[in-house]
Amino acid sequence: MNFAPAGSGLLAWNEVLPAAVKANTRWFIVEHDLPKDPQAIIVQANSYLVSQLKTLEK
């Protein structure tokens, strides 16, 4: 099982996030199965999403 926080792993975030912004997505839900440290995963995923979305919204 290869779970990774948002911004890591195999997903093409550079394609997913621009498409989500273009579709006027209002909510981004962070989900991770079996995290060893849930708080760290949330903080890391949130930080990544916020930083990437700021660059896309300009």
Rank of each mutant, 00 (worst) to 15 (best):
L56F: 02
V21A: 07
F28A: 06
Q39K: 13
K36L: 13
W27D: 11
T55V: 06
T25L: 10
W13C: 01
W13N: 10
Q44T: 12
M1F: 03
G9A: 04
T55A: 11
I42T: 13
D37A: 12
P5G: 10
V43W: 00
V30L: 08
P38G: 11
P35K: 06
D33C: 09
L17C: 08
K58D: 03
H32Q: 08
I29F: 05
K54M: 03
K58G: 11
N24E: 14
N2R: 06
E57H: 07
V50W: 00
F28I: 15
E57W: 06
V50D: 04
A23M: 05
D37V: 12
H32D: 03
N46S: 10
I41W: 07
L53Q: 00
K22S: 15
A40L: 09
A19I: 11
K36C: 09
K22M: 15
L17Q: 10
E31Y: 09
D37E: 07
V21N: 02
A40I: 08
N24T: 07
K58P: 08
A20N: 01
L34P: 00
A19R: 06
L53V: 09
K22H: 08
L56R: 02
A12H: 03
D33N: 05
W27F: 14
L56Q: 05
L34V: 14
L49D: 01
P5D: 02
G9Y: 01
L10V: 10
K22W: 06
E57Q: 13
